[in-house]
């Protein structure tokens, strides 16, 4: 009996991945993630355990840590460090904004940090970087879940009822995911060429919070309005807040434009990352 019948023939060539187009690359990445789903699950579990291993409070840390920045901003807003504004109460405004901010910046930061830190391991273990990125997203999803619970608690406390369109925030998040994750993938590749990309991204994500209507509104001046339209973070933060609390999106054109750009950036990012992954392993 021929034992080789039904065996897969793997072809390794320098341009194996270059043959794939945008959608081919996307499909290959999805397949890779599916193939390594157990690895993703086990790495997520491992990271979850590691984050509290050896601590006295144990698993409570996994709930405390995501809430620390929220409570700090909440405290600062309550002592009126930030300018006053009308509409949604301060506590809900800040907590919701910070939660959305961390989700969107996470989409950028996760691929960048994984490529920078796990490429050596990826080369030694043959684990694709895509699976490491996805398992780190699982951390982000959990942290976001904890923060959302916190936001809901505050809304209950403040007796604030969300609008009926609130579930549509997931659509906004998805559009944001395409844009920021795609950008994160492109930046992770560019960062391998020049480390400056990481520095610049770090600065933008650290201080962009104050220019994105996260903890207080941007303002109503012409520059502020322009900024809120061209700053994609501001666009998605505002759109999320509006759809949850007001039931409509005031500036839907910038949202639509950025969402369309996001789809293109996502496809470009996926292909670039997929094609360059093996080269990334050698260079970082």
């Amino acid at each position: 009996m021929n034992r080789d019948i039904g065996k897969t023939l793997t072809v390794i060539r320098s341009d194996t991945r270059h043959n794939k187009g945008f959608f081919g690359s996307l499909a290959a990445l999805f397949y890779e993630v599916y193939q390594y789903r157990d690895q993703i699950r086990s790495v997520y579990k491992k990271n979850f355990r590691n984050s509290y291993n050896g601590t006295g409070l144990g698993v409570a840390w996994n709930f405390i840590l995501p809430l620390v920045p929220l409570t700090v901003y909440l405290f600062l807003s309550q002592i009126r460090v930030f300018p006053s504004f009308e509409g949604v109460d301060r506590a809900t405004y800040v907590c919701f904004g910070v939660t959305v901010w961390f989700v969107l910046t996470g989409f950028v930061q996760v691929p960048m940090s994984i490529v920078a830190s796990r490429t050596k391991e990826a080369m030694k273990t043959s684990i694709p970087l895509s699976s490491s990125i996805v398992s780190s997203f699982a951390d982000l999803v959990f942290e976001t879940f904890v923060r959302i619970i916190f936001v809901i608690c505050i809304m209950v406390f403040m007796q604030l009822i969300p609008s009926a369109t609130a579930p549509l925030v997931l659509v906004v998040f998805s559009a944001g995911f395409f844009l920021f994750f795609g950008a994160g993938l492109i930046l992770s590749v560019l960062n391998a060429i020049y480390k400056d990309f990481e520095r610049v991204t770090d600065i933008i994500l650290r201080y962009g919070l104050f220019l994105s209507g996260v903890i207080f509104p941007i303002g109503k001046s012409d520059i502020s309005i322009l900024l809120s339209n061209v700053n994609p973070f501001a666009v998605f933060v505002n759109a999320s807040r509006e759809i949850v609390f007001e039931g409509y999106i005031v500036n839907w054109i910038p949202l639509l434009l950025w969402s369309s750009a996001g789809l293109i950036i996502f496809l470009i990012g996926c292909r670039l990352f997929y094609v360059m992954e093996f080269k990334l392993r050698e260079i970082v």
Binding site: I12, K124, S126
Partner: peptide, 13 residues
């Protein structure tokens, strides 16, 4: 398959 060659081809069954 930890790294790719720059030219040539490998077939593994």
């Amino acid at each position: 398959s930890q790294i790719l060659p720059d030219s040539g081809e490998i077939n593994i069954l």
